[in-house]
Design a protein around this nucleic acid. Structure first.
Lengths: 145, 145
DNA sequence: ATGAATGCAAACTGTTTGCACCATG
DNA sequence: CATGGTGCAAACAGTTTGCATTCAT
C-alpha cells in the first residue's frame, strides 16, 4: 500500500537525476520498502532472486546505495561485518536496543532524546541530516538464562 | 601517566583469564591508551612498527579484540569499511558528531541524553553495557564552502 | 614442559569495479 | 541511438585463520 508512495518518490528522484528506471530497481525498491526493520543486501538479493532469478547482487548493492544517496535509506553496521539498511519512512524514526548476547534488536522512540540532540547540533553549528543511537546491553531474557 | 592504570588493568584481566602476557600486547595496549580519539588497527600497526618492526598486524587485531572482550575498548564503524577503536576511559564518555562532507568527527557530552537513555533501558528491562550515538550532518565549515 | 602468543601467508567476506552486452528515454 | 543499467567475474580491503615456531608460566 504505502510502499507505492516510496516507489513513486524513487521514480521521481531517478528522473530528476537524469538516470533511468529499470525493472530491477523497481523490484529492489519494492522489496526494500516492504521489509520490516533492517535488511542486508544479501538477504534482499535472495528474496528478489525468487521472483527474478537472473538479477545480480551487484544491482542490489547499487540500488541500495542509490537509495541512501536519495536519502530514502540509512545504513547501519551493528558491530558486525555486514551492512544493514533501513528504509527511511516519513515520520516514524526510531533508535535501537541491541542485546550483546542474543543479538535481538528492539526499537524504541524517545522524543525527548531527539529534542536534546537537536540542541546539541545547534550548539555545534551542525546541520543535522540523521543520527544513529544504538544502546547495547543484555536483554531481560538473556539475563535470566 | 594514567595509561599505566589501564596497562595494569589489562595485565590483571589477562592473568584472571588464564592468558599470558607478552611484550607485543603491552605495546598495543600502551599505544592504544595513549591515542586520542579513535584509531584503526592499521594506523596502530604502523605506529607500533616504528618501535618494534617485527610485530605483525594480526597481533594488533587480536589484542584489540581482547580489549573489547575485556570491556576496555569500543569499536565503531562510522559508515566506512574500516573499524575504529576507542579506549574506554573511566568516566569521560562522549558521543560523536560526524560531518558527511568532510568526515570530521567532533566529540560532545550531554548528561541529559545519557540520563534519558538509562530511563529507556530500564523501561525495556535492558542491562546497559554501552551505547553509540552518532549524529550525522554538515558542519559549519562545509556549509560555507 | 605445557599451552598460549606470535608472525607469516593464505583464506575469507562483504562490497566494488571493469567490461561486454542490453535496455531505456 | 546515445547513454545509463545489468550481470558476470575478477579485484579489493579489512579482517580472520591455519600453522609452525617462539615464549611465558
Amino acid at each position: 500500500m504505502d510502499k507505492n508512495q516510496y516507489l513513486e518518490e524513487f521514480r521521481k528522484k531517478v528522473k530528476e537525476s537524469g538516470l533511468k528506471q529499470s525493472l530491477q530497481r523497481e523490484l529492489v525498491v519494492e522489496f526494500f520498502f516492504e521489509s520490516k526493520g533492517h535488511v542486508d543486501a544479501e538477504t534482499l538479493y535472495m528474496e528478489i532472486k525468487k521472483i527474478n532469478p537472473t538479477i545480480g547482487n551487484t544491482t542490489i548493492y547499487r540500488t541500495l546505495r542509490l537509495l541512501c544517496d536519495f536519502n530514502m535509506a540509512l545504513s547501519h553496521t551493528f558491530n558486525t561485518i555486514t551492512t544493514y539498511f533501513e528504509p527511511i519512512r516519513a515520520e516514524e524514526h526510531h533508535d535501537h536496543l541491541i542485546c550483546i548476547k542474543c543479538g535481538i534488536i528492539e526499537e524504541f522512540r524517545d522524543s525527548e532524546i531527539e529534542r536534546l540532540q537537536k540542541d546539541v547540533a545547534k550548539k555545534y553549528d551542525f546541520e543535522l541530516t540523521h543520527h544513529i543511537l544504538q544502546m547495547y546491553g543484555i536483554c531481560k531474557k538473556c539475563r535470566k538464562s
